[in-house]
Design a protein around this nucleic acid. Structure first.
Lengths: 216, 216
DNA sequence: TGTGAAAAGAGAGTAACTGTCAGGTTGGGT
DNA sequence: ACCCAACCTGACAGTTACTCTCTTTTCACA
């Protein structure tokens, strides 16, 4: 699942975009911005799929979305972000946090993942997967992916720490989460190499192996 | 230990640099190239430490090392590579491969790490650590680090697969290595946050936790 | 000492970003 | 209805990493 990997790029982004922070009910201004943002991302993804990521320039995206380059960079601080931005991340973190307290971390994790996947409509899932493939195939994207991961890892560490009642900077927690993310990472790339591989199955395999004490 | 993390950047690099491939005994030409390479990296690191990574331009490095920018890019395909390039990686992989076959993977790993660290002189170790700190602190470097990791992970997976007599594309192997690298990654960053932390100890902790079946 | 191949340099070009400034748009308060 | 302040947007110039192509220099070897 992507969530864990890229998670926290999002809150940072939103904060940086000058939303008022509190207002949960979006005003006209906010909604217009949201639309502009989606429009840019849509055009960007469409161009990437059509002519490849590196052969698409920001200028082209801006033109297609009918905004200036300045505006493009106001919405996405880098070109890569148009791909890496993941709207399911906060959903996952929320589900994870709301799993019953008596569940072991691995079970909570698994259930949260299932719930997120169940909610995604098949059509949206297809689009997501093409986005994932893009990330897996484009070196530049693969490269900028894990910086998001690092922050995401920190957030997940917080959630796990809370669940087991320990401090989030506890070394054991950090190592645990690091191993988890690394394993899922490996499973993710294995899944992208398998033409009709089911991402969720691969990730399940990773979780199961960790749960079993990492046998070889 | 860095080795695992950045490993394979090196062979690629060397292959791309037009060395004859076979000749193990270096001729004058080869040695001159090696010197130029070191000279560039030395000046680069010195400038980074003095004025910061992002405030140092390739032009400045080239000038300081008395080469043209063209030449700079012939030796390092990106600016980040001047930092990420790790001469201990091949050493580590070799040591790991030569551990007695009856050792469990975790033990082989631990011993190989110790052997590498023992060989490094204290002075060189200090320099290495300042390099690591640079990587940990500079966002752009953190970002470009894991692409090297990915290739390094693949090489480590090969070594592990051979050791346990399985195919390197075995999913369990890939997950195992992924978890290992992820855990070490986490330990590494924890170590950089601890002013007088000993990297090796942190990494040892990660290995021990994995060995114990990843308890929480 | 001459010669062919490899290395280095020169220079023009591309594209991702950054910073600034000026003009237009929006929304809350009167 | 109007105005002010905050905000959004575009235009534009500049920086810098990186690429390509072409020419000149250096060096191994005969």
């Amino acid at each position: 699942m992507w969530a864990i990997l890229t998670a926290a790029a999002r809150p940072v982004r939103i904060a940086a975009m000058g939303s008022r922070g509190h207002a949960p009910q979006a005003g006209l201004r906010e909604r217009k911005k949201e639309r502009t943002r989606s429009r840019i991302q849509d055009h960007a993804l469409r161009l990437y799929l059509k002519q490849g990521y590196s052969r698409t320039t920001v200028e082209q995206i801006a033109e297609a979305a009918d905004v200036s380059q300045s505006t493009f960079f106001r919405y996405f601080s880098t070109k890569a972000e148009t791909v890496l931005y993941d709207r399911f991340d906060p959903v996952f973190l929320e589900k994870f946090g709301h799993q019953p307290a008596e569940l072991a971390p691995f079970d909570a994790l698994r259930r949260a993942l299932w719930e997120v996947f169940e909610e995604i409509e098949p059509e949206a899932l297809m689009l997501e997967q093409s986005r994932w493939r893009l990330v897996a195939e484009e070196p530049e994207l693969r490269a900028s992916l894990p910086e998001g991961t690092r922050q995401g890892t920190a957030m997940l560490a917080n959630a796990v720490a809370e669940r087991v009642g320990r401090r989030p900077d506890d070394l054991a927690i950090r190592i645990w989460v690091g191993a988890l993310v690394g394993a899922i990472y490996a499973a993710f790339f294995a899944a992208t190499e398998d033409p009709d591989g089911n991402y969720l199955e691969y990730i399940d395999a990773a979780i199961a192996q960790l749960e079993a004490g990492l046998p070889l």
